[in-house]
Design a protein around this nucleic acid. Structure first.
Lengths: 110, 110
DNA sequence: TAAAATTACTACGACAGATGGAGTAAAAGA
DNA sequence: TCTTTTACTCCATCTGTCGTAGTAATTTTA
């Protein structure tokens, strides 16, 4: 339903918001995004995993292995203190983005 | 204040929203974006003009010359019927985007 | 119990939109 | 006349997303 064209710029923040709840891994994050958005947004696997790589490089998340009980070996990620700061910053930015975009799109007729 | 990283995906729609009011040209559009956003968002010139090219190629806007009274020769743009349709579609998409992103970022703690 | 589906990634090349920087050009203002 | 403002145009580069393909282990189903 929603294209990553419009979601671009918020993919990283969405991932962080879920890791804020509990450490998780790619496949689960993907499912949770789909579920929580009521199937309105499905993040592509390649997009998701490249986001992980990027976020880890920036020290916003940290990876670790956990003794899994089922399925293939997973790489778990948890959010760092720096990642939490970044999320708060992005949260503020999102509030401002809505204000600004609404100034043009919603408030302004149509 | 706002980066085009977060605005990307809505630049075209913002431009169309202003052309919906009256035909205009690059320099003026740039100023109106800055003003209406209370200096929170400044669209880069290159971004703006490349958006014009893209939008015209897609038949969402149409260019014309007008007898100008001052300054350098301007290229004016007006929105087409197809552009209006596209805008309405993007408007709906924006409402949905807000809903979905808020599900993760705002409603969800922090 | 063998085949199919699901889980869980990794690699790679292509592409579109945004950016920085440089340059051009005409008119208005000091 | 020199500077500022208006009004673009061109180009090379970067970043994030995408499509496609492949790997691998475990669970389900036939």
């Amino acid at each position: 339903m929603l294209s990553s064209d419009t979601m671009r710029g918020y993919n990283d923040t969405i991932i962080l918001s879920l890791l804020l709840e509990w450490p998780s891994y790619g496949y689960e994050i993907a499912k949770r995004i789909k579920e929580r958005s009521n199937n309105k947004y499905v993040m592509k696997e390649t997009t998701l995993y490249s986001a992980f790589t990027r976020l880890e490089k920036q020290d916003y998340i940290r990876s670790f292995q956990q003794d899994k009980t089922m399925g293939r070996r997973r790489t778990y990620y948890e959010i760092t203190a720096k990642g939490r700061e970044y999320f708060d910053q992005k949260h503020q930015e999102w509030l401002l983005t809505q204000e600004v975009v609404n100034q043009f799109i919603t408030d302004n007729r149509s």
